[in-house]
Design a binder for these strands. Structure first.
Length: 882
RNA sequence: GGGCGAUUAGCUCAGCUGGUUAGAGUGCCUGCUUGACGUGCAGGAGGUCACUGGUUCGACUCCAGUAUCGCCCACCA
């Protein structure tokens, strides 16, 4: 048994990932007869590389997957990536631009080829990063949202929904991105408050010299105005209803009409109506029979309907129109106005409401069951408060625009006959029109929203629409791990689609984790330029430390601000684990064999640490079950470092180094306990820090089994030792008191004092005598005596516990003034605690209403504190006599 | 306008269903070549738990309000 002097993360990471994979540990076997546990990865977009959010997301999933595997489950963690329609198309277009090309020049087929090449590149990079992170994904099952099988699933879903009337084609106002030249769904529009202007414009009433004033934030849209609306109850303008006004610049006569949508208080109470470029105006136009005039092309330039402004970009047109209005005397005033403006979530271009023909999913019928599945607890959000967000959106859900005017995506399986215009929705392209028999068939140019295919992810990846063994065993999945930013985009859609097509929920739990934010609380994103690269962190600190830090940060219900300082601290932890193992191994013989530890062999500290180990097993397991990753990680950290290393290992040194032959059995027991606690700890730490733990395991294991596939520790009922645990706490307090006095008094370590213990308690006296060696070693003493009748010397430094007084005769070694102020400080501290307790106990309503056990506890505390204060005062008085 | 969350040590953060001496990492101070580790060991300083009320015998913890910050949704002619 041996490990190298130093841990080298880079080589261990490469070696172990390869070994695990080659041994097939990542692969899920449908036929293994074990209880299934499944997770599907939120498929990363093939747009580049992974960021901190991905690192957190996948670390959590890997912790769960590794833990469940060690729990003996048949674990499937399904890998894959998302084609990410707009986002990926944009990336490739940018690359083309750098080459001086455009996608139009390439043509659709060639362009798609280029995107596939990019997909290979980006996908490869992402896979490399996931591997580096240690993700135990079943790579044999890797899927892509645009691969053949998933395309089949998409077509099947589309056709089914279409046949049932849940997908329809409609001519409507949608959100249009003039840069991406595609429609977007409502949730793909991000609203931002912008400072703009509110232009007040004068319209002449036809046939008169009177004017009205309308106000607008988008003056360019007046080119498409076909009416002016007033509130039907607005007396100021009721005489105008039915009249016509002259649209300035355009010189078109348009009607004034009444519509209750208009808010009398806002602006001038008169609304210019542009049915083709505003959703509300569109509705009003429909209600009042207005003409719809589209004035823009797909890139946001004014089209032939815009007269002299034709060819101008929408913002240039706005500027020019305002100038012309001003020149023509139509501009009454300009106010400052802030309003929220929709932006494309992929390219941040200002969205244009745009009238066009698109495909929609009629979503309400699907939403109903999806709401129910959360209400009745079949699906559970963790933390629970996200359910409210989910309901809020689902109750107010609007039809989903699923068509995109892109080249990268699932082409909509609709076919048009060029002869008779008939539309066919089919799984396979029809060779001729079923209505007129023509062979002139053309497929719909539009592709589907990326989220349409990712919404099928939990079952499409398992082979649906075939009824595969994987689906039977692993669907529904056990848990979905994701960020709250895609609850609407993805989680809700998967729930709806899963219920509709699998007739079952897609996952039991939805664990919503924190978003990794920058120091200003902003999302880390490439466009903001505030990203921390996970690869750099892994290079610098090792993957294990990085993962452990993320786990510690993963507290529920709160976002995290990433801190490299904390990462540094947890790297030290991996170092600590390594070095402590080195110590243990150098104390084990060549032929060391782990044995079952009979309780009768165990000494008090052995019992204590095994008891603590039991508690840690329980706490870590419970925390993992409840998705409290930070608690689990902290529990392991505290146990391993501050109990096992700081105390138990230190305590074994006296036993291990003893030259006394009668101590041989005691040291052998210590060796067994050290090995046992180490190996059990490694198991529990493995899901968090897979590499360093497996590397250590390689050096200490006594079988061929790798740590990754070993079994998760269970509480051992043989090792429940309450009494020894509490005795050890007393022991620790004794040592702590001695160290405290030495430290406070600046007693140099080479000045070894002898300590006198004065106690009336036989238990404590026995404890001290029995653990004499350890007290001497840990307190750095020359010797100890127990003397119930000890009369302290005036120059003794002292410390007080509830049933014990500790005296350090430091004649000549200490500064009496220092000791005096130290005692005063102690008295103040204990005194104020005592006072608090006394106030409480003298309060009659407390003693009459508080539960008995609380009163008992407080009473005991008061007695102890009182005794301590008393003793401290005595010591101080003696000092004063000098 | 509606909703959610945050405010705890210099910094980054934990503290579950009310009773703890309010913790961790990091930073700071003191001492340490203690036969695993200075990425370490021992000791220490540092907090009116944002503010104001309320409920309660008892509030960092529950309730209401205020302030500041952040996020989501809706509307904005």
């Amino acid at each position: 048994m041996r490990i190298p002097d130093n841990f080298d993360p880079a080589s261990a990471e490469e070696k172990w990932y390869k070994t695990w994979e080659e041994n097939g540990y990542f692969h899920a076997d449908e036929n293994d007869g074990r209880e299934p546990f499944s997770i599907v990865i939120p498929p990363p977009n093939v747009t580049g590389s992974l960021h901190m959010g991905h690192a957190l997301n996948n670390t959590i999933q890997d912790i769960i997957a590794r833990w469940q595997r060690m729990m003996g489950k048949s674990v499937l963690w399904m890998p894959g990536m998302d084609h990410a329609g707009i986002a990926t198309q944009n990336v490739v277009e940018r690359l083309l631009r750098e080459e001086g090309k455009s996608r139009e020049e390439l043509g659709r087929e060639e362009f798609e080829k280029r995107v596939w090449e990019w997909k290979e590149h980006s996908g490869g990079q992402i896979k490399g990063q996931l591997r580096r992170l240690g993700s135990s994904l079943d790579w044999e099952r890797e899927r892509f949202t645009l691969d053949e099988g998933l395309s089949k699933a998409v077509q099947k879903v589309f056709k089914t929904l279409y046949d049932e009337g849940l997908i329809y084609k409609g001519f409507r106002i949608i959100n249009w991105c003039p840069r991406c030249e595609t429609a977007l769904s409502d949730i793909e529009t991000e609203y931002r408050e912008l400072d703009g202007s509110f232009w007040h414009i004068r319209y002449r009433i036809a046939g008169t010299d009177e004017y009205i004033v309308v106000a607008t934030t988008r003056p360019e849209t007046m080119l498409g105005d076909t009416g002016v609306a007033v509130n039907p109850d607005d007396e100021r303008y009721s005489h105008l209803v039915g009249k016509k006004v002259i649209l300035p610049l355009v010189e078109r006569e348009i009607p004034v009409f009444a519509d209750s949508y208009v808010d009398r208080e806002f602006g001038t109470g008169l609304v210019k109506v542009t049915p083709a470029h505003d959703p509300n105006d569109y509705e009003m136009g429909k209600r009042n029979g207005l003409e719809e005039i589209n004035i823009m092309d797909t890139r946001g330039f004014i089209n032939e309907n815009g007269g002299v402004y034709r060819g101008l970009d929408r913002f240039a047109a706005r500027k020019k129109i305002v100038e012309d209005l001003d020149k023509g005397g139509y501009l009454v005033k300009v106010e400052k106005h802030t309003h929220s403006v929709g932006h494309c979530y992929r390219c941040q271009t200002v969205i244009e409401p745009y009238l066009s023909s698109q495909w929609f999913v009629k979503i309400k019928p699907l939403a109903e069951e999806a709401i129910k599945s959360v209400e009745d607890g079949r699906i559970r959000f963790v933390p629970k408060n996200w359910e409210k967000t989910y309901y809020e959106w689902m109750y107010n859900i609007r039809d989903w625009c699923i068509s995109r005017q892109l080249w990268w995506g699932h082409r909509i399986p609709a076919y048009y006959c060029d002869e008779c215009g008939e539309m066919h929705v089919e799984l396979d392209a029809p060779s001729k029109c079923s209505k007129c028999g023509s062979a002139k068939i053309r497929q719909e140019e539009d592709v589907l929203d990326t989220w349409f295919s990712s919404g099928l992810w939990p079952f499409s990846t398992m082979g649906w629409p075939e009824n595969t063994a994987a689906l039977q065993k692993y669907y529904p999945t056990s848990v979905l791990v994701t960020g709250f930013d895609i609850i609407f985009f993805w989680v809700a859609r998967m729930i709806m689609m899963g219920l509709k097509f699998m007739d079952d929920i897609p996952f039991r739990d939805v664990y919503i984790h924190a978003l990794v934010r920058d120091e200003h609380g902003h999302k880390m994103s490439k466009s903001r330029g505030n990203v921390v690269d996970p690869l750099i962190m892994m290079d610098k600190y090792g993957t294990d430390a990085f993962r452990f830090t993320l786990a510690v940060f993963a507290a529920q219900g709160r976002d995290v601000v990433f801190s490299e300082k904390r990462l540094e601290g947890y790297r030290s932890f991996t170092n600590k684990i390594w070095n402590s193992t080195k110590f243990i191994l150098m104390n084990l013989p060549e032929d060391f064999k782990p044995e079952q530890l009979e309780p009768s062999r165990l000494e008090v500290f052995d019992r204590w640490i095994l008891h603590r180990l039991n508690i840690t097993v329980e706490r870590v397991s419970l925390a993992l079950e409840e998705y409290r990753f930070n608690d689990a990680a902290n529990e392991l950290y505290d146990f391993y470092w501050h109990e096992f290393c700081d105390w138990y290992i230190e305590l074994t040194k006296q036993r291990l180094y003893s030259k006394d032959n009668s101590q041989a059995e005691s040291s052998e027991t210590a060796r067994q306990v050290l090995y046992h606690v180490l190996s059990q700890s490694l198991k529990m730490m493995h899901p968090f820090m897979p590499y360093v733990t497996e590397e250590i395991w390689e050096g200490i294991k006594n079988s061929d089994e790798h740590l990754m596939v070993s079994s998760w520790p269970k509480k051992d009922s043989l090792y429940v030792f309450e009494k020894e645990a509490s005795e050890t706490e007393t022991f620790k307090e004794i040592v702590y008191k001695i160290r405290n006095v030495r430290g406070e008094m600046n007693v140099p370590p080479d000045k070894k004092a002898s300590v006198v213990f004065k106690t009336g308690s036989e238990d404590i006296a026995a404890l001290i005598k029995r653990e004499e060696v350890h007290i001497i070693a840990l307190g750095r003493l020359s010797g100890i005596t127990v003397d119930p009748a000890y009369v302290p010397d005036k120059s003794d430094a002292s410390a007080v516990m509830s049933e014990l007084e500790i005296y350090l005769p430091l004649k000549g070694l200490i500064d009496l003034g220092m000791e005096k102020s130290r005692l005063e400080k102690e008295i103040t501290k204990a005194g104020s605690d005592l006072e608090k307790v006394e106030v409480k106990l003298s309060n009659e309503s407390f003693t009459s209403k508080a539960p008995a056990e609380v009163i008992e506890k407080e009473t005991k505390k008061r007695d102890e504190l009182a005794a301590i204060v008393e003793k401290l005062k005595e010591s101080l008085n003696k000092l004063a006599e000098l």
